[in-house]
Computed example of a mutant assay.
Amino acid sequence: MGDFAVVAIASALVLTVVQAVTFGIGRRIGRYNVVDVAWGVGLAAVAVVAPVVGGGDPARSTALALIVVVWGLRLSWHMWRKSAGAGEDPRYVEMLERRGGNRVVTVITRIFLTQAIAQWVISLPVQVSAVGGPVRGAGWWLIVVGVVLAVVGVVFEAVGDAQLRRFKADAANRGKIMDRGLWSWTRHPNYFGDACVWWGVYVVAAAQWPGVLTIVSPVAMTYFLVYATGARLLERHMARRPGYADYRRRTSFFVPWPPKV
């Protein structure tokens, strides 16, 4: 328990630094949607720092670090390219207008602090694994399954993002609904890939006690992706787009499934 406390504190400090730097960048450029870029960077930083501080089984810690770092840096790079040159996120504009009062305090507490806490909770499987001993017996099968699931998630998300980026880059597609490639099997391949990554990370952590207790991480991530800030919120915005109702009727919401004819 003492080792985990050290890892937990170190992770919290790392996330605080990441969010503080991101807040400073946001203030400088005049928009706070840069916090979306910090999501992957912060989790990748925890995946690197936690095993160094924890000193647990190096094989499992290295596997988790590679998965989370590749996933996190790719996602952050994607979000940076997506937000570069764009205006402020409408969610944050609405939040600041609704809350009023001290805008700096609102931004820090409602955006950056909230994300830091969420990152700490999501990274629990990585933190717990960083202090665990070697995995023996059947536990190795869980590690293999978890790694495969996470890799599938990274690839699924990356391919979905690349397909959407190419679709939007073609002027002939302006005003059209993306319904090709992975987007013909699920309306949210990027969110589904994210969920796979963190369920995979959890399975790796669950290969040894008490990693199984960190199930709050993939559950919380899936909730964010589907309800809180992800798919459902985006669907409400997209519902006004011409052709989206038909797209919804023939395409699976979240889990990939062959499209209806």
Rank of each mutant, 00 (worst) to 15 (best):
P218W: 01
A239S: 11
A118H: 03
P218T: 02
R31F: 03
R232A: 12
A239D: 13
E88N: 10
W209T: 15
V226M: 10
L13D: 00
Y191V: 02
L164D: 11
V41P: 06
S184W: 03
N173Y: 12
Y191N: 04
A8Y: 06
E94Q: 15
A118F: 07
V105G: 08
S184M: 02
R232F: 09
D194R: 06
A10G: 15
L164G: 11
E97Q: 09
I25M: 08
I177W: 10
R110A: 13
H188Y: 08
G153H: 01
D246V: 08
R236G: 15
Q115I: 04
G137T: 10
V212F: 14
P58N: 11
G133P: 01
N33L: 07
A220R: 01
L64R: 04
V147H: 03
V145R: 05
P210T: 14
V219D: 08
V41N: 10
T186C: 12
P210G: 12
R74E: 08
S11E: 00
A38C: 09
L213W: 11
L15A: 01
V255A: 08
W257E: 10
G181D: 09
V203Q: 04
Y32W: 12
V17N: 03
G175R: 09
F112V: 11
L13Y: 00
V52I: 14
Q19C: 12
V21E: 07
R91M: 09
R31A: 04
A86P: 02
K260M: 13
V219T: 14
A47F: 02
R249L: 02
I108H: 08
Q119M: 08
A47Y: 02
R180M: 12
Y223M: 11
R103D: 12
V21C: 11
V6H: 12
I67W: 01
D194G: 15
I177N: 14
A169S: 14
V35D: 09
V147Q: 04
A118L: 11
R27H: 05
G30R: 00
V68P: 00
Y244D: 09
D161T: 08
V151F: 03
R174G: 11
R103E: 14
V35S: 11
D246L: 09
A150P: 06
G85F: 03
G200Q: 15
M79K: 13
P51H: 05
A150K: 06
P210M: 13
V14A: 14
L164S: 11
R236D: 15
Y32L: 12
C196K: 08
L13A: 15
G56S: 13
I67C: 06
G85S: 04
Q163V: 13
I25N: 03
E94S: 13
A158I: 09
S184F: 01
L213S: 03
P259W: 06
V37G: 05
R165P: 05
V53D: 05
I25F: 10
